[in-house]
Amino acid sequence: MTVEGLLEHGFSPVAMPDGSRTIDGVYIGDLLSWVMGRAQMDNAWITIMSNNNVIAVASLADTSCVILAEGVELSQDLKDLAMAKDINVLSSPKSAYEIAVTLSGLLA
C-alpha cells in the first residue's frame, strides 16, 4: 500500500510531496516524545496533534505519512513546512480507531 493509494479510501491529501512511499505498519500516538522513540520507519502515524513539531517528529522517525484524525487541520505554514521537509500528511474525519481499522484491512 502506498500513501497515494489511501486517497481512494476516504483520506484527503494535506501535503503530499512523495505519494509513492510504502506503508508497512501503523503507529498511533499524540505525545511526541513517545512517538519519536516508537514509531517505525514507513509507518503511517495517526495523531490528533497539529503542532509544528509533528513535522519534526515525522521526519526523525521517517514515517511514510502522518494521518490527522478527526478532521484536525494544519495551518498553511505547516503545510508548506511539510512540503519542504518531504513529509506526507493526510487527513480524515474519522477517529484514530476507525482509521486504524481501515488501515488494518488495507494492509492485510
Binding site: L31, S33, V35, M36, N51, N52, N53, V57
Partner: peptide, 12 residues
C-alpha cells in the same frame, strides 16, 4: 512541553 512535543519548541 518537551514530553508532549518531543523537543523544546524553539520556533515559538
Amino acid at each position: 512541553c518537551i514530553a508532549i512535543l518531543g523537543e523544546f519548541p524553539h520556533y515559538a
